[in-house]
Design a protein around this nucleic acid. Structure first.
Lengths: 181, 181
DNA sequence: CCGCTCATGTAACTGGTTACATGATTTA
DNA sequence: TAAATCATGTAACCAGTTACATGAGCGG
């Protein structure tokens, strides 16, 4: 059996947290998160829940809510087992090593810019990352007293990461200044 | 004209750094990097350089090196311009906000595990991240005195990020211990 | 001579993307 | 009543993935 995609796994997790829930609700969770790399597009989520249902990891009950129909999803036994298997150690190495940062990707090639342009790049990156860090911190605070502790702790991870990026950019700025002298 | 994909941009950057270079060399750079999320698979890289050439951002000269043929790539004027445009401010917001961490994705759903299992998860994540941090630090050191300063500074970014993950996991462990009491 | 690295590609697949289509309900 | 939100989906597209195919050169 093919491995579950990251999206499918995330959907499984969301359903476990929010069951019974609609595919639409799942989409919104992705859209609202300030840091998910999933767009939460219908074209991704609906096929994903469909695949999970066909695999027997999700089950659905169709409810008629006025003239509006809702498909409510829940985990099956197998779904819970799959979620647990994903969560239980050991973590796959490639997941530990995985890391993408579109700002960093750019930094590797900053050499082609003039010293001045490089500085502009770093200033812009710093300013924008600071703005983003504020958003993340607010999101963190919002979840702080929420019912789902893990939601808060996950958000803390985003904050740590964002602040690390900030400190790195500050080091970068210092290094580039030194190079100019 | 369609936007360039992340892979295409990264390829452009690599060619700018390593020209004249082969597609094979580009693949290896991706494969060697301890943190790229690109596999450097032939099925991605060869089509990508092909697309870039068709767009007029790369040009190629075929060299015969003994009985072995090599396609050597260089940036064209337009290629350099595209690379500069990508590097120059302002950074697109979605690139600043972008962040994925397969460990964190799991943490969000740790609630379904028992307290003991949660602790096991965190211990495993910590141990593996420490190991990874050592690899990253070594990679950083290796590039430290290399010819390409930016390569080093980029690697520093990976290190900052990895260490942030470590500190976050330590906080997570403390929080989960408190919850057990 | 065997197997590894260099080197270039193709084919089948798949899981995302955007954009579109439809319709009920709520709110300004 | 118009617009936003809730809700479900489909279609076209595309850029990645793995796996396969081919072949030269080189070190043991």
């Amino acid at each position: 059996m093919r491995e579950l995609s990251r999206l499918e796994l995330a959907v499984l997790g969301l359903v476990s947290a929010g069951a019974p829930c609609t595919a639409y609700w799942i989409r919104r969770q992705f859209q609202r998160s300030p840091s998910s790399h999933f767009s939460g597009s219908a074209g991704a989520v609906y096929p994903a829940v469909g695949r999970l249902e066909k695999r027997g990891l999700l089950c659905t009950t169709t409810r008629r809510d006025g003239g509006r129909r809702k498909r409510l999803y829940r985990l099956t036994r197998n779904g819970e087992a799959a979620l647990r298997a994903w969560l239980l150690p050991p973590l796959p190495v490639e997941d530990v090593a995985f890391s993408v940062d579109p700002v960093r990707t750019r930094v590797y090639y900053l050499g082609i810019l003039s010293a001045e342009e490089r500085q502009q790049f770093v200033e812009d990156a710093l300013a924008q990352t600071r703005r983003h860090a504020a958003v993340v911190a607010a999101d963190c605070d919002a979840r702080r007293l929420g019912s789902d502790r893990m939601q808060y702790l996950g958000a803390r991870g985003v904050l740590y990461e964002t602040r690390a990026r900030l400190r790195w950019l500050e080091e970068l700025r210092r290094e580039l200044e030194d190079a100019v002298l």
